[in-house]
Simulated assay, not measured.
Amino acid sequence: MANFVLVAGARLGAWAWADVVPHLEAVGHGVHPLTLSGLADKHGVPAGQQTHVQDIVDAVDSADLRDVVLVGHSYAGVPVGQAAERIGNRPARVIFVDASLSADGEAFASGGPDGGAAMRAAIAANDGFWPVAAPAHYGGHGLTDEQVARIVAGSTPHPGATLTEPAVLTRPLSALPATYIHCLLPDGKLETAWAGLLASYGWRLVEMTTGHWPMFSQPRELSQLLLETAGE
């Protein structure tokens, strides 16, 4: 059986996977939701991007996990992609859930049409943290008001250094045995640049008819995709 290591995106922690964990455990898999340093119950712990990479590596090494399926959602795709190449032959597969992908020397904050200027400004104005998003940020993503309230209530400001420091990769991500899950809401489009990149990697691309936080909006459907993908 596989060992799923689940890493949620910015501002979130292990708690974000609460509705997914039972579906994976029900069929006998090991499930290890992870809170990265500086977030949720680890809020206040100093963290840079390499801290988050090491958090993932340590979670795998300390439990001596084998047949690992690394799952990175949103921001977590950046440290997960780096961690995957540092745990030897343990990853059976890497699954990126509507995630950012790391490139050597590039920071998460460098993405977007403004090159990350707005994110960097927000971090500078909030004592080095990316502030928690307002409820309106989650509109159009297939979430109920209750789900949005749950996300906002559980979120913590995100350590800014993890977003602005560059990724460190010794080999291209295309070398990973990976699948990319793209969430279609709100606009149903995968950016042309991303589509071309994924095609060049030769990864399987899977779509979900929901928004950027499927562990809340469609946990059962996401769990089934994770199970199907892990068995490939």
Rank of each mutant, 00 (worst) to 15 (best):
H212R: 14
L184D: 07
N3E: 11
L6R: 01
L101S: 04
P33V: 10
W130N: 11
G38V: 10
F216E: 08
A133N: 13
A124K: 04
V97G: 01
S174P: 00
L184C: 01
E85F: 01
A118I: 06
V69Y: 03
A230K: 06
S102H: 05
H32Q: 12
E221F: 02
H73N: 13
R120L: 04
D104C: 04
T170A: 10
R171H: 12
G188A: 04
E85S: 14
T209A: 15
A134Q: 14
G38I: 11
G139I: 09
V206P: 03
V21E: 00
G116P: 09
P186I: 01
P22I: 11
V71E: 00
H137P: 02
Q82W: 02
G211M: 13
V5R: 08
V31S: 05
H141S: 05
I95F: 04
F129M: 13
G188M: 01
A124Q: 05
T170F: 01
W15Q: 01
P33A: 07
D104K: 06
G77Q: 00
P186S: 02
V57H: 00
V5T: 12
D61G: 00
A199E: 15
S223G: 08
G115A: 09
V71S: 02
L36Y: 07
G30L: 05
A16V: 08
Q218V: 10
A109I: 05
V5S: 08
E25G: 13
L227T: 12
Q224L: 14
E207T: 15
P131N: 07
V21H: 05
L101R: 00
G13T: 09
A14R: 09
V206N: 03
T164Q: 07
A83L: 06
G139H: 14
Q54G: 01
A103Y: 09
R220F: 10
G105P: 08
T192P: 10
A103C: 10
S223F: 02
Q54I: 03
G28K: 07
V31C: 14
D41S: 09
A84F: 03
T192R: 15
F129E: 11
P135L: 14
H29V: 09
H141I: 02
T210E: 07
L226F: 00
A107D: 02
R220K: 15
G44R: 03
L65Q: 04
G81L: 00
F129R: 11
R86L: 15
A103R: 14
A125D: 12
V57C: 03
G105M: 13
H158W: 10
A161L: 14
R93T: 13
G112C: 07
G139K: 14
T210A: 09
A76K: 01
A124C: 06
G140I: 09
T156N: 07
V7A: 03
W130H: 12
H73T: 07
H32K: 11
A134C: 11
Q147I: 11
E232Q: 14
L12G: 01
T210N: 08
P46E: 13
F129H: 15
G105Y: 08
V45R: 09
P33E: 03
F108L: 10
A199C: 12
V60A: 03
